[in-house]
Amino acid sequence: MNRSDIGVDLDKEQIAYIVDDDEAVRDSMSMLLETIDLPHQCFSSANEFFEYYDGSQKGCLILDISMPGMSGLELQEKLKESNSLLPIIFITGHGDIPMAVEAMRRGALDFMRKPFQEDDLIKRIQQAFDSEANTRSARDIKQLMLDKLALLTSREKQVFDLVTEGQANKSIAYDLDISERTVEVHRSQAMKKLEARTLAQLVRIKIYSE
């Protein structure tokens, strides 16, 4: 199913947020992403990023695991607390493996050891973008469907539920103890409010809202 089909327009503005205390690592990674025109933004500390972060950021986070001040793991925890959906790719130096394992356990998307294969990094950023878009669209679509369903009156909602269960108008009328004509009115009102033209679209709305 196409996203536009159900009225969702995804923001294509995904950015790779690079957080590393080493200026050279930041700058070289920035140059590498420039070669493939991948939008990115650099931060020299976890704190700097966390101050910038407001929940609207889309894309992914490339995060050095051990930094002075707030560590990568701490930033990961803080973002988790603010219900962030940003996937995190950790970059680790030597001897950070136990920390990387811990980061993965806490839900990091991936980790890479310095120095790394540049192609690998690019591939993983793209995977992170896809994963983030999927999670976000699933969440957005659900929210959108719930918003639309909230517009229905309770009678329209009853009719919608029974219709999407596959019941015919006649049996709905019997169940709700109203006339078939009234069922038709509720049904067409509901479809109008939900911007659905076919029964199939109604069923999709039902599925996405669950």
């Binding site: 080493d22 690592v25 070289s28 590498l32 070669t35 130096g93 120095p115 790394f116």
Partner: peptide, 14 residues
Amino acid sequence: INQPLTAISMYAQS
């Protein structure tokens, strides 16, 4: 040593 090596590698790739 790892930091400059990482940077060198990425600059070279770029």
